[in-house]
Every structure is written in structure tokens, then in C-alpha cells.
Design a protein around this nucleic acid. Sequence first.
DNA 1: TTTAATTTGACAATATAATGACATGTTTAG
DNA 2: CTAAACATGTCATTATATTGTCAAATTAAA
Lengths: 243, 243
Amino acid sequence: MSEFGNRILVVDDEERIRRLLRLYLEKEGYSIEEAEDGGTALQKAIQYDYDLIILDLLLSRIDGIEVCARLRQQKATPVLILTAKGDEVNRVQGFEAGADDYVVKPFSPREVVSRIKAILRRSSATAFVSKDFFFGNNKIVFPHLIIEHDARRVTARGQEVNFTPKEYDLLHFLASSPDKVFSREELLRDVWKYDFFGDIRTVDTHIKRVREKLNRISPEAAAMITTVWGIGYKLEVQKDLFI
Amino acid sequence: MSEFGNRILVVDDEERIRRLLRLYLEKEGYSIEEAEDGGTALQKAIQYDYDLIILDLLLSRIDGIEVCARLRQQKATPVLILTAKGDEVNRVQGFEAGADDYVVKPFSPREVVSRIKAILRRSSATAFVSKDFFFGNNKIVFPHLIIEHDARRVTARGQEVNFTPKEYDLLHFLASSPDKVFSREELLRDVWKYDFFGDIRTVDTHIKRVREKLNRISPEAAAMITTVWGIGYKLEVQKDLFI
DNA sequence: TTTAATTTGACAATATAATGACATGTTTAG
DNA sequence: CTAAACATGTCATTATATTGTCAAATTAAA
């Protein structure tokens, strides 16, 4: 396994999904290759050493499982399976065929990225002093706000603040790239599932709720969520705290 | 953490203060190291495992908070902050950056010593988990709950609580990674056999039973099992940081 | 001041969790 | 060996909480 730029093979018959995954994974520094059908996938997977294979079961129901099972006979490459909701039968078959993880479609790109990181972390037990550890993937600390991702806990002024799932996801996403401005479209794409096409003002409502809850405990923390007029929102780190 | 002779890092730019603290703390059996500025402190703190860090905020106002916050991203070492009288702004920031206690200068050496003892007592109470976990000791100790893995015995309020195998496995699994949230899928995968593909709500039922049994003996212990809405469950460690 | 964008509150539609009752296995005691 | 006690998983029901939409009120920019 290369130290950075892990190679990932994305197998899906929908061009849209392949493009979406490529977009998000390349942003994380992975190197992506694509395959459209099971045959090509299997051939590539055997010929090259990928660090991970993302496999959509809906290629054709039998096909996906079979690719996974036949690959397993020859290689130990981790496999992450994408599958439709409630597709229980395939879930059983998938695990039996040796899949390492499962993601139900529609998925949120962030979730897929984080699961991929988990798989790769697991599969390279030797490299456990990973970048993530040192860069505090788990704990994000700001002057007025602490986010512990494992615990999904947000603390302001030493007091815990309770958020709903979407609220938390939104806040955590903003906090993961402090000072960076995101448009509402971007937020919908990243924090919501990829097939959410509702009202764009939904973002505003959620921002409001996050601010509200933070504000009860710490106005300073609430003030970090900044509106960039005409553009979107960001989580701003105060730099002039010390007078 | 060594049983006696805990290692303490004293960070202060005044030589006089460092000497004073060393004098009193060595008399109590602590082993002292010193750092004169934030950079050195951070470097040492990350490189070595101290049991406590005493940090003077006046190093330079920005520096002290930053050292604390940046340290917190990587380590859980307790921090006691020294600061000038009435420096309210910094006090709030200090706690938010993850300080465990806070002493106003000028301080009485005896007070500092007793606060240090309190911090170390507290931190070893919650840190039992990781320590014992990592060193193969089978005892997981929480304020209201003790789990002895060899004996598969759970004690709350000094009273034994009887669990069925699955219930015990579930509780023990959660207790092995306190504060970490697990989805139902993860729990099924890790606590149940890998080939369990039944109803996901089975987890809920078992959680209910564990809570029920704990609750009869100790509501506090039962309350540790927290539902994270939309995500799953975790076993939460109470943090009574504020005196 | 005008215009466009944002904030906000209320509400309906969804989604998720807690619980109780039951069926089916599995162990234990006699 | 058998019956009772226990453990486990399922499922339907009830109880809660979240999420998205929309339109009116407010605010910012030019």
C-alpha cells in the first residue's frame, strides 16, 4: 500500500455515481480508477493491486456478489459494497462473499469517505500512527467550542450542547474546514445525501437551529457561524481574542 | 501512569515560580520537569507522557491557551493553569481549551499541591479504562460501574448485577470504548456473530434489558447508556470537571 | 430608498426509538 | 429424560424527535 494516494477502484454502472465518488475521493488524495461492469472490474482487480474496491451490487444482482466472491479467491483487497436500501438478501450474500463494509444508497459522500478511511486504517494495522491520529480527526478544538467526533459530543464553555443528527453533521462539517466558506449547494451536497434536491433554504433553517442551541450556552460559539452574504456560511475562527 | 512519583511538567517563564513549584512538588514525591516557553512545552508534552502539566498563561497570553488547545488535540494529559488574578477572559478560554483546573496567582503552594492531588485522583479514576484496557488488566472502572471481564462480573453501587451472555457482551463492548458512539450495525457486527443478519432492532431490545437491570440497582449506571438519536448508542462517562 | 438575501417561526410530514408481548430455542435441575 | 426456567430474537404499537417547506419579517448592500 502506498503511503498516500491510495488506489481505489470504483465499480458502478451509473456514470453519475462514479463521477460523484471520484470527485470526493480525489479531494481526499486517493487515486481513482473506474470500471463499468463486473467483468472489467474483476480483470482490473486481479491485474492491479488496489487498496480498496468500491462495488455497487446493482450492476446486476448476481454479478456484484460474484465479482466479490471470485476476487476473494485470489486477493485480499478490501471491498466496500454499495447497495440499495432494504436489500437484505444481498447484504447476507455480500458479507458471505467477503465484503468489508456496506453502505446503503443513497449515501452521503462524507459517510463513504469516512468509512473508507476506517477500512484502510484497519487494513494497514502497521501504519497505525496515521495522519488522522495526529491531526485530531476525532477532536476539534476551538477557543469556545470543542467537537469530539467519536462521541458526537459538542461542548461550549465546558457544557455539552445537544444537536440532532443533521445539525451535528452540519456543524461538524463546517468545523472540519474552519474559515472556509461553503455555498448552500455545497453544504447540501456534502452534508445531505447525494440525492437530496429539496429547497435550498433548508440549509438556512438548520444553520438557525445550530446557532440557537449554541447561543443558549455560548454566544461566542454561536458567533463563529458566520453568514457570508450572497455566498453562504462558514465557521470562523476568532483571531483577535486577546486584547 | 506510575503508581507514585507522577511526572509533572511545569511551564512558566519565571524561574522563581518554577523553582518554587519544584520545591513543593518534589517534597510530595512528584518528579518534575520544566519548560520555559510554549514551544518547548508542547514538544515535550507530546513526546513524553506526563501525568500533569502546570501551565502559566502569562508565558504570553496567546501562547498559553494555544499550547493547551493544541495539546488537547493530541493528548489527554491533565492541565492545571496558572493565571493572574481577575483574568476572567482567559479563565473561560482556558477551560474551553481543555484545562482541568485553574489557580490564580499569587497562589499558596499548599493549595496548588492539594489541587494537583485532586486532579490526579480524578484523572486516574476516569483513565482506569484506557490504562487497564491497554495493559490487559481486566477491570474497567467507572464512577458508578465496575466490569471485571475475567469473571464477567458487573458491579454497580457495590452490588452485583446479573446479565445474560449477550447483555454482558453488549455492555462490555460499549464499556471498552467509553464515549464512542456505535451504530446498531456496528454493534451487530462486533457483539453478535459475524453471521447475524436479523432485525436491527434486536439491539434496542438488548439495550433495554441492560438498562432495566442496571436501573434496578443504580439509575446513575443505567443513565450511562445513552441513545444518540439517528446514530446508535454509547456508554457515556460522566465528567464532573467543575468543582 | 430599493432590492435582494437572510432570518425566523409555525407546521406538516417523516423518521426513529422505546416498549411489551410473544414465539422459539437453549440450558438447567431434578 | 423431562419440565421448568431462561435467553434470545421478532414484531407491532406507541411515544418521541427530527426534518423540510414556506411565507412573513428582518436585515444588508448599493
